[in-house]
Design a protein around this nucleic acid. Structure first.
Lengths: 162, 162
DNA sequence: GCCTCAAACGTTATGTTATTACATTCTTCG
DNA sequence: CGAAGAATGTAATAACATAACGTTTGAGGC
């Protein structure tokens, strides 16, 4: 399994930030979007932390670095990132996390460890799609969907067993 | 299709409230839980509205009826209901809705219509479970999960097509 | 190059959602 | 009855989010 696929395993974090920024740059250029300084910095903050951050956490870091200090500064940057698939909002936590699989069109599933508070983004198998099954049986047209699970990650499970 | 399974179809609402209350009463008695007046009233408010209500909406109605007027009154009642499967929180909306399938152990999927704001609780097929697939491939132990989809319900879709 | 216009940004103010903390009352059960 | 735990009420505050408005920036047409 690709270590980056599931965030509960150690991985080489040194390059993944710059790689992700580069990818975001390219994506925005190709799509005619402006990855402005605030937006880029907000993304890199999420990438650096590699966990779900509240909007006010991001705001605090942005304002320390000379960006505006008012909530809309953070919310607007985060809105941009989530709108264009560079980050996701974890509804359960009212928090934001950098997307682990940008580029790919995907419906992410999040696994939230209630012990260590890590959040992993798991890929769902589209061929197996629960969502299309639901859409079919109910006549509902799905625009966006979120799947969030709370529980215990492999690391914490191991520790508690020891 | 059972009209109550998917909330987008008309159904006989006159009895479903009292039936649900009766079922909740029995469930709590059997489980040794106290379905106190505030809790029961909070549940009936959710049932009457038959849609997702914010905690402060519920609070307003409770306080009108002589219950406490401070947020914890509503949050505690709603916590009780959600903890014991009588209601669910829709994270996407920061709102609460009475459970359409009490008794049954289930992982509900919610369909949120962005046009009429109706929320339906769809049953997921456990044998088909996306969640167990994820748990298996990641080693994550899932305690609770929420699946929420936004889109257009059959009724609104029909109207916009007309 | 320069003008125009829409997008992005900054700030003030306010709205909405949720929790902490603590005193009081009710229930259960020995 | 009396103790212990659960449930309730209230005050205060924390945490999350948006509306509204003026200013700045920079992309694209001329």
């Amino acid at each position: 399994m690709d270590p980056n696929t599931v965030g509960f395993t150690k991985h080489d974090h040194s390059h993944c930030i710059s790689d992700a920024i580069t990818a975001a740059d390219r994506m925005c250029r190709d799509a005619g979007l402006q990855l402005t300084p605030v937006r880029k910095r907000a993304l890199s903050i999420l990438l650096e932390e590699h966990r779900a951050l509240g909007a006010y956490d991001v705001l605090a870091r942005l304002s320390e670095e000379g960006f505006g200090a008012q909530p809309p500064v953070a919310y607007r940057a985060l809105d941009f990132l989530t709108k264009h698939g560079l980050a996701h909002k974890i509804e359960r936590l009212n928090a934001f996390i950098a997307c682990a699989h940008p580029n790919e069109l995907h419906t992410p599933a999040f696994l939230i460890c209630t012990t260590c508070h890590a959040v992993a983004e798991a890929e769902t198998d589209p061929s197996h799609s629960l969502l299309s099954q639901i859409a079919e049986t109910t006549g509902f047209t799905i625009a966006r969907a979120v799947l969030e699970a709370e529980g215990t990650c492999p690391n914490c499970r191991e520790k508690s067993a020891a």
